[in-house]
C-alpha cells in the first residue's frame, strides 16, 4: 500500500495515461528503426487477467489488433514472457501453424522475428518483438545483445509509467491515496501561481504539523 501511496502522490503532478501510450509507441518506433525492421510490436502483461495485450505496433501490422488479448504462457510471446528467454526465429513462413500464429498476433506473416522479454527487477512486464530485419545483413548474436539492452531501457521506463498509471487508477476512487494525491496536485498548482504563495506556505506548515502529529 505504501508504494501505491507514494506513487499516488507522484501521480498528482504527473500526467500518466498519455505518456504511457506515447512511450509504448516510441519503444516500437525506435526498435523498428534500430534494426531497420519492417515492423515492431509490444505486448504487455495484464496481471489481473493473466493475459498478454497487444499494445502498440510500428510499421507493417494492423492497428486494429491493438487491445487484442493472448494467452500469457503459450505461443512465442507467452514462452518468452514466462521463461524470460529471448528468442530469434527465421523462416517463419515455412511452418504453417507458426505462420498462422504470427499472423494472428501481428496482422501479417513475417519471415522472421526477434522476441525479447521486458524485465524490470523481479517483474516480467511484457514482450517486445522485432519483425523482419533486412535480409542483406547477417543476423548476429551482438544484435541480440543490443535488443536485450534496448528492452532493458524500455522496461525501466515502462515500469515507472505503469506505477503512475496504477496511481491514476487509485486517484479515481475515494481512498486515502486519492486524497493525498489531490493535496499534492493542489500544492503543485499553487506553487506555479506566484500570487498564491501565501496560501501554499500556510498549507505546507499545516502538513508539517500533521506529519509531526502522525
Amino acid at each position: 500500500m505504501s508504494e501505491d501511496l507514494h506513487a499516488a502522490v507522484a501521480a498528482g503532478v504527473f500526467g500518466a495515461e498519455e505518456n504511457h501510450r506515447a512511450l509504448l509507441q516510441s519503444v516500437v518506433e525506435v526498435a523498428r528503426a534500430l534494426f531497420r525492421a519492417k515492423a515492431s510490436s509490444i505486448f504487455l502483461l495484464d496481471e489481473q487477467a493473466d493475459e498478454l495485450v497487444f499494445e502498440a505496433v510500428a510499421g507493417e501490422g494492423a492497428d486494429e489488433l491493438i487491445g487484442k488479448r493472448f494467452p500469457s504462457s503459450t505461443g512465442i510471446a507467452g514462452w518468452v514472457l514466462v521463461t524470460r528467454q529471448p528468442l530469434v526465429i527465421e523462416d517463419v513462413a515455412a511452418d504453417a501453424r507458426f505462420g498462422r500464429e504470427a499472423a494472428e498476433s501481428t496482422g501479417y506473416v513475417p519471415k522472421g522475428l526477434m522476441a525479447v522479454p521486458l524485465l524490470h527487477d523481479e517483474r516480467a512486464l511484457g514482450v517486445l518483438e522485432v519483425l523482419d530485419r533486412p535480409t542483406d545483413t547477417r543476423f548476429t548474436l551482438k544484435e541480440m545483445d543490443l535488443l536485450s539492452a534496448f528492452a532493458n531501457q524500455a522496461a525501466i521506463s515502462l515500469d515507472l509509467l505503469q506505477r503512475a498509471r496504477r496511481a491514476h487508477a487509485a486517484l479515481a476512487d475515494d481512498g486515502d491515496a486519492a486524497l493525498l494525491a489531490r493535496v499534492a496536485a493542489k500544492l503543485e498548482q499553487r506553487g506555479e501561481d506566484d500570487d498564491d504563495t501565501g496560501s501554499r506556505d500556510a498549507a505546507l506548515q499545516l502538513l508539517r504539523a500533521l506529519e509531526q502529529l502522525l
Binding site: 521463461t83 528467454q85 529471448p86 528468442l87 530469434v88 526465429i89 527465421e90 523462416d91 517463419v92 515455412a94 511452418d95 504453417a96 501453424r97 507458426f98 543476423f139 548474436l141 541480440m144
Partner: peptide, 14 residues
C-alpha cells in the same frame, strides 16, 4: 524441430 512435425531456424541460449 518445431510443432506440426516441421522445423524452424532459431537462435537463442535456450
Amino acid at each position: 524441430a518445431w510443432v506440426g512435425g516441421g522445423r524452424l531456424r532459431c537462435t537463442g541460449n535456450s
